[in-house]
Design a protein around this nucleic acid. Structure first.
Length: 473
DNA sequence: TTAGCCTTGAGG
DNA sequence: CCTCAAGGCTAA
């Protein structure tokens, strides 16, 4: 297995020394003692997880499998405790089947990267506080009241006074409540679908310690999807939809990460809207990588080819993610963010320079075009794969396979279109036109972002920058 | 069984 | 060398 190296320019200007102090165990809220089985946890949950997996223990919940797990009550229900361990992302495969002691495992680089990211975020938010005036987009922030997290852990450490924006800077407002339900799914901590573990295989042959009701799936059925004529839908379209992440999950995870960023920062300063957007984009990129990595066909490719494909199309997918959100759930004249917040487009445009303003205008036009066509979730899912499987990427090892994949996706999309709107043969051509406009826009957006990166205005050392710099070096 | 402390050992 | 996440040990 080949690992994709993340350039970790560890030379951070500020000599932060990592201290687990202050971090709370995502399972029970106790003090963190270090990285254990994939993430920062306390000593007791580390031991509990180890015992459970090593001895293949099975627990039964006496209640309704929703017991609170905190420091005081964690002994009460091992079933719910283990469930929570899995839910927050503890890795079964980090428990060694052979019980070998010492040494390092393949999670080492991930821990390192996680540390680097945490440091970088501190530095970033600290630094952006001093750059506020020079940013074209000014601060706003995340009110917490609409984002209720069940589960009772992860106490909100952000004081309201700290997140309340100053009136004139508040351009991110609240999403209309009817669109996105307020009952978010269970709290999920941000997990890093890091490049470093692309090739991780389970070391543990017997990696299911409890039989059912464990590990809530990353993707669940989307509340918004309403597939027309289920029986007539091509099989591959169904398959593509199954790969598509759930908007609500994305929302809660992104919100959780932004919250995490914020809680680790100087609580009396707000990062710029631009850097918040960069963080959202970075988070979305993680989701895109995770989506691709676990998707049908793509996961069969060699990792080197996977990387080449993603390096080629990440910005297209990122932009399509934003655009499809506007088309499916958005409101005219405003930008709906992945977090469910809304920004008035006029507010952004008035603060943006000419480059960004023209990008926004063209993006708006594309959204308009796709809205008129009433492009649906099924078609967007196909388009994503169409973008991903680009046989024109150079130096592909499995070029033939990717070529046939693209043909197959095209065929699927066409079949779907004909099955839903037989009168619109031109629809397929229209969609392909939109795809090429998307390509143009993403390329412009990349240039714009790179320019701002060179002016040191983009948070560095993250996946966004990794991708941005990959083909320019 | 739990959870705090101890020992181990590959990788930096 | 040192680090630090693995597994191990043991008193509650």
């Amino acid at each position: 297995g080949q690992h994709l190296k993340i350039r970790t320019s560890d030379a951070l200007p500020t000599p932060f020394h990592f201290t687990p102090t202050g971090e709370l165990c995502p399972v029970c809220g106790d003090k963190v003692s270090g990285y254990h089985y994939g993430l920062l946890t306390c000593e007791s949950c580390k031991g509990f997880f180890k015992r459970t997996v090593q001895n293949n223990k099975k627990y039964i919940c006496a209640e309704k499998q929703e017991c609170r797990v905190d420091k005081a009550q964690r002994k009460r229900c091992p079933f719910c405790r283990f469930q929570k361990c899995l839910h927050v992302g503890m890795r079964l495969e980090a428990v060694r089947a052979d019980r070998m002691r010492g040494g390092r495992n393949k999670f080492g680089p991930m821990y390192k990267r996680d540390r680097a990211l945490k440091q970088q975020r501190k530095a970033l938010i600290h630094a952006s506080a001093f750059r506020k005036e020079s940013s074209p987009l000014l601060v706003s922030s995340t009110h917490q009241r609409d984002y209720t997290f069940s589960g009772g852990f992860q106490p909100d450490t952000i004081p309201q006074s700290a997140v309340l924006p100053t009136a004139q800077n508040d351009i991110i407002s609240h999403q209309h409540p009817s669109l996105l339900p307020s009952n978010s799914p269970g709290a999920t901590l941000y997990q890093y679908p890091s490049f470093s573990n692309w090739t991780v295989k389970s070391e543990h042959p017997n990696n299911c310690a409890i039989s059912s009701g464990s590990a809530a799936g990353i993707y669940s059925d989307n509340l918004f999807s309403s597939p027309p004529q289920g029986s007539r839908m091509p099989r591959l379209v169904m398959e593509f939809l199954r790969c598509d992440p759930d908007e609500i999950q994305l929302q809660s995870k992104t919100t959780a990460r932004l919250k995490q960023e914020h809680s680790g920062s100087n609580k009396h300063r707000n990062p710029s809207t631009f850097s918040i957007m960069c963080l959202m984009a970075d988070q979305t990129l993680f989701f895109i990588v995770e989506w691709a990595r676990t998707s049908i066909f793509f996961k069969q490719l060699k990792v080197s080819d996977q990387m080449k494909l993603l390096h080629n199309c990440w910005s297209d997918l990122l932009l399509l993610d934003i655009i499809s959100r506007q088309v499916m759930y958005g409101r005219e004249g405003s930008l709906l963010l992945v977090t469910g917040q809304e920004v008035e487009l006029s507010d952004i445009s008035s603060l943006a320079g000419p480059t960004l303003a023209s990008l926004i205008q063209r993006g708006k036009d594309l959204v308009e075009k796709l809205s008129v066509l009433k492009v649906d979730r099924q078609e967007f899912a196909c388009i994503k794969f169409l973008i991903l499987f680009n046989p024109d990427v150079k130096e592909l090892e499995d070029q033939g396979f990717i070529e046939s994949m693209q043909e197959q996706v095209e065929g699927t999309l066409l079949e779907y279109i004909l099955s839903t709107s037989s009168q619109h043969f031109g629809r397929f051509a229209h969609l392909l036109l939109c795809r090429s406009e998307l390509r143009t826009l993403s390329s412009l957006a990349e240039d714009y972002l790179y320019f701002r990166h060179l002016s040191a205005e983009v948070p560095c050392n993250n996946l966004l920058i990794e991708m941005l710099c990959a083909k320019r070096s």
